[in-house]
Amino acid sequence: MPAKITKTNADYPQTPYDLIREMFIALGVIGVLVLLCAAIFSTPDVPALTAKQVATQAPQLFIQTALDDLSGQDAISTYGPPYNTNGQAQTLGPISPEAWAGVQIPIMSDEVEVLAPLRRYAVVNPSITPTLNAWSSASSKQQTAWVNNVEKYLDKAKLVNGSLVLPQTKLDYGPVPQILNAYLRLARSGILEDTIDGSHSPMPAVNRTKSLLLLQDQPAGQYAQQLNMSGGQWGIIKETGNYPGAVWLWFYTMLYQIPPYSNSSSADLLVVSTILVVTLILVFLPFIPGLRAIPHALKVYRLIWRNYYQYERLHRRNNT
């Protein structure tokens, strides 16, 4: 039984040792190391992606995002819990913590991301109010038809003096072009995020859930793709630019890339469950026969304690 310990720590010959001195030396060594790295390499800081930037650099992408939000086809409108009940919660057999927790942060994208900010904006620019009323008094079937008509001709649309101009057709666009133009102006002014987030409490906008969910799908995804940071590019462990990222999450990120995780509709729950099981095994390794004997079998310990084993050998030889 190799794992059995016959004598304890204090039964061995001792050498003097200064913990405090060692502590200060280590503090100095790490301090110098960190100082050098910081001075030589600095740190990355790619500015936050803003609605202003998307509306200016990629107006069509921004307009498409707004259209998806209006017609409820965006990723959040169809997400399910914790945002709404319109999507499938992730499940693992009968287990679905997402469904059990239910809607915790209610979000309907059309209202939260587009209409509410424009209504707040209408206080300063009342001319938008009839447009918003025309939209909200229409049936949802009518709203969808308007959005679909705009989407059909979006590729042929132009920006004239910063305003969206759709080609003249027989199709009825309803109030959608005016809504989109007001939304574009709001975004270009740089205050869209604040009109989305900062209205429900006396707090400044420290909770940015809603504005982050506006750009999370296509715009942020496209941006991340160009920085080699999409999910399929192991984006979770990567840092922007040439910097090391969170390599300690390699196992978590790797699971997303391989089957059965990569082609599961409940990939997140499956990955998290696997991580939980693997972590529990590692945490309780001391109690798992077989696994806890691996270090003895690997024999790396002989290298670590080689001086001691040599000492023991000499000691025994001298005694015999």
Binding site: V46, A58, P59, Q60, L61, K238, P244
Partner: peptide, 29 residues
């Protein structure tokens, strides 16, 4: 109108093989 978003920096080099995609910096670490 259909232009792409432009990040202010270029991504670092990454080693890609099958489903592996590891940045040079992470490999060095």
């Amino acid at each position: 109108m259909n232009t792409q978003l432009q990040p202010p920096i270029q991504p670092g080099w990454a080693w890609q093989y099958s489903w592996l995609d590891l940045s040079l910096a992470d490999i060095i670490v």
